[in-house]
Design a protein around this nucleic acid. Structure first.
Length: 603
DNA sequence: GGGAGAGACGTTTTT
DNA sequence: CGTCTCTCCC
């Protein structure tokens, strides 16, 4: 793919701006971007490697697409969904059920169900979608799941839109991870040019976001295109290729094929170890990693894959305590705690009183039902008067307006106004930060983040933008210098000379389906979990030239604390007192004859 | 609007 | 097993 772009740029038939390379995750996009920029061709630095979401947001903003629909391209953060969930009519079910309905609304879009012949939303689904949209319109916000659907609708309904002819070459990586609406939006973007999709349905692991892996298989036929199969595994040692082939061969729902080994890569080294407890497992993995580093292995060449934080975090903590440079992708985000969320909302509202989502959040926080009954009365008034939430609350506070049963909401509003007034007194950035985070200890991660962007910022607005970026889109470092601990999902697209897959227990990979799940869904889920394990195995990179054969360790414990297993949704064989009893993943038996026998003891 | 007791849920991911 | 959520009651 890289060579193809390079050739076109070199012979001058293409400018960098006419090439679009998209993937689904930010890390993969960053990676792709780096790869393209590193091409030794003119203007390579102008090549575009990005996520579909960031491209979609840019197009939607650029063309005021949302505004013409009466919508605002202001995505909701995860935590901002909480008051929304309370504000939705309880007639649609419990909070859990309402959350599910939001999921179904997004899912219908993702699958383009309303364009499938015979699909009819039930009256109840339609009514729910209307209520949800009403709230979003009133609060001038959008659900993150609406971003791509709106891009798709804009492109489909505006055949003359410049974006439909903008790109002459589109490269789409990890195509099997995209859902229907994403695939169709890209088809419209690539309409006037050549499209190159790269996908492997054996690596389809995103059913929970309604990925449409069949799109890869059908692509060549639907678009009347060439199909280039990549049959050789250039990355992995031969043993790993054999194990991966054997494992994935157990899946029914795939095109039968085998990855060919590359003998020059060598056989590699594979160990499979069982430990008495999860604690022993973490200790052994951390000790082995420390030993490797002592022997001269670069920390950046080592990854630890854990399908649950419960398995990954103990390894991370031990590495950190041993002074090994490491990074956990399970680390708490700066907005994890409600205290941090509250500070964040205050900041946003301070900059923009008309940020309706932040105001709604702040009015309800620290109350068990987010003041939903009182706020519901205020919303009714807003719909009828056309006033904004801030205006309405101001009138209520001054007594110009009166709505029964809203006294505590108004009291809360006065507190918010008082705090914002205090912040506006602060002179200079440091004084502002001190006033905004009077108790930095209570929100230490947020404080760290804001301190890190303090230098770059010249005013309060820039400080917020920097903070927002740092929190929502942390930078992907160019050079990896630490041991990385992450999920199997996150590892997609990466390769590493030393790979540890921890917590390989039955009930996790594969997970145990809920009782009563229909058989076909159980089977599909099992196959997806098998692909997940397959992705993990195939991260191992052989570097014979560097004298590194490629190392894979598969580990699993026999016991772990029951509370932890419950919390992390790990289905134990049995529970004895406070201890969950675990056994080996069934996938270990499917690795074929070249896999070493599992053993106990050190790695 | 708040407290007590019963019941449901918990993961992986995109901006 | 803990924590969040729902229901019922004041």
């Amino acid at each position: 793919m890289k060579r193809r772009v390079a050739r076109l740029l070199e012979d001058g038939s293409l400018s960098a701006g006419q090439v679009l390379a998209v993937t689904f995750t930010r890390v993969a996009a960053e990676d792709l971007h780096r790869e393209l920029v590193s091409l030794e061709v003119p203007n390579a630095e102008d090549l575009n490697g990005r996520t579909l979401h960031s491209l979609a947001m840019e197009i939607l903003m650029r063309n005021h697409v949302m505004e013409t629909l009466g919508r605002t391209p202001r995505p909701l953060n995860g935590f901002e969904l909480n008051p929304l969930l309370e504000d939705l009519n309880p007639a649609y079910g419990t909070k859990h059920e309402r959350r599910k309905l939001i999921g179904a609304y997004v899912a219908a879009w993702s699958r383009l169900q309303h364009e499938v012949p015979g699909y009819a939303a039930t009256a109840a689904e339609q009514a729910f979608a209307d209520e949800l949209t009403d709230w979003l319109v009133l609060h001038q916000a959008m659900h993150i799941g609406e971003v791509i659907p709106h891009l798709y609708q804009y492109l489909r309904d505006n055949p003359g839109a410049p974006e439909r002819g903008e790109f002459r070459h589109i490269l789409i990586d990890e195509y099997q991870d995209l859902n229907r609406v994403e695939q169709e939006a890209l088809a419209l973007l690539g309409e006037a040019g050549a499209v190159c999709v790269i996908g492997d349905d054996d690596q389809s692991i995103y059913s929970f976001k309604h990925a449409h892996p069949a799109g890869v298989r059908e692509w060549a036929q639907v678009h009347n295109a060439e199909d280039h199969e990549i049959g050789e595994c250039r990355r992995c040692p031969t043993t790993i290729v054999q194990m991966a082939n054997s494992l994935i061969g157990f899946n029914q729902d795939r095109l039968p094929r085998q990855m060919a080994e590359r003998p020059e890569n060598g056989v590699g080294q594979v160990v499979i170890r069982q430990f008495q407890t999860a604690d022993d497992e973490a200790a052994a993995v951390a000790a082995k990693i420390a030993q490797l580093i002592e022997d001269g292995v670069a920390p950046g060449d080592i990854i630890v894959l854990a399908q649950r934080a419960a398995f990954g975090t103990p390894v991370f903590h031990r590495l950190r305590d041993a002074g090994v440079p490491c990074k956990s992708y399970y680390e708490e985000s700066a907005l994890e705690t409600e205290a941090a969320q509250e500070r964040f909302a205050v900041f946003k509202l301070f900059l923009d009183q008309e940020d309706r989502v932040s105001l709604r959040w702040l009015l309800g926080c620290n109350h068990n039902r987010w003041h939903a009954p009182a706020y519901g009365r205020v919303m009714a008034h807003m719909r009828q008067s056309g006033l904004s939430p801030w205006e309405t609350m101001t009138q209520l506070a001054s007594g110009t307006l009166s709505i029964p049963h809203t006294a505590s909401l108004v009291a809360r509003f006065n507190e918010i106004v008082h705090e914002l007034d205090g912040l506006s007194q602060a002179e200079g950035l440091d004084a502002f930060i001190a006033a905004w985070l009077p108790d930095p200890e209570a929100v230490s991660l947020l404080h760290e983040a804001v301190t890190a962007c303090r230098e770059e910022a010249e005013d309060v607005g820039q400080l917020f933008d920097g903070l927002y970026d740092a929190i929502t889109a942390p930078e992907v470092p160019l050079e990896v210098a630490e041991v990385r601990v992450m999920s199997l999902h996150k590892s997609k697209g990466l390769s590493s000379r030393y790979v540890f897959i921890v917590g390989c227990v039955e009930g996790l990979i594969p997970s145990r389906p809920e009782a009563g799940t229909p058989q076909d869904i159980v089977r599909a889920k099992l196959e997806e979990d098998r692909r997940l394990f397959y992705v993990g195995l195939t991260r191992v990179k052989a570097s014979p030239e560097a004298g590194r054969p490629g190392y894979l360790a598969i580990t699993y414990p026999m016991r772990m604390p029951a509370a932890e297993a419950f919390r992390s949704q790990i289905a134990a064989v049995s529970t004895q007192g406070n201890v969950a009893v675990l056994r080996a993943s069934r996938f270990l038996a499917q690795l074929g004859p070249t896999a070493p026998a599992p053993a106990v003891g050190e790695l």
